[in-house]
Amino acid sequence: MNIEVTLVNAFTANGKGGNPAGVVFNADQLSDAQKLKIAQAVGYSETAFVSQDDEADFEVSFFTTTAEVDFCGHATLATFSTMYQKGMITAGSYVQRTKAGLLSVLIEPNGKVVMDQQLPQIIDCFSYQAISRVIGIESRILESTQLPIEVISTGLPDVMIPVPSGYLDAIKPDDKLIADFCKKHQVIGFHVFELYEQGSKFTASCRNFAPLFGISEESATGSASGALACYLAEHLALGNDYVFEQGRAMNCTSIITASVKTDNSRVTEVKVGGFTGSVDTMFITL
Results as ranks from 00 to 15, higher is better:
Y44T: 03
E68Y: 02
L156A: 07
D174F: 00
Q117K: 04
S225D: 00
V24L: 13
D53A: 13
S144P: 09
T281C: 01
D174A: 03
N264H: 12
L168E: 02
N26G: 08
S45F: 06
A41E: 14
F62P: 00
A67W: 05
E4L: 12
N264D: 08
I141F: 10
G274M: 03
A249Q: 13
H74Y: 08
K201Q: 10
A78W: 13
N2Q: 15
D124F: 01
P162Q: 04
N251G: 03
F62W: 03
A39G: 01
T262V: 11
D28Q: 13
G166Q: 05
V8N: 06
L106I: 14
V60Q: 13
A227V: 01
I89A: 11
L142I: 07
T90Q: 15
E138Q: 15
H235T: 00
S153D: 01
E143T: 10
Y44K: 01
T65R: 12
P109V: 06
N9D: 11
F202R: 11
M250V: 06
K99T: 07
I161K: 03
L119E: 01
E59T: 09
D175A: 13
I149G: 09
D54N: 15
N2L: 15
Y231A: 00
K99W: 00
I256K: 00
E4K: 15
P164V: 05
A78S: 13
N2A: 13
D180Y: 07
T12W: 09
P120C: 06
F11H: 06
I215Q: 04
C125D: 15
F63K: 10
K112R: 14
Y242D: 01
T145S: 08
G111K: 08
L168S: 05
E59C: 09
R266Y: 10
D70M: 02
K183T: 07
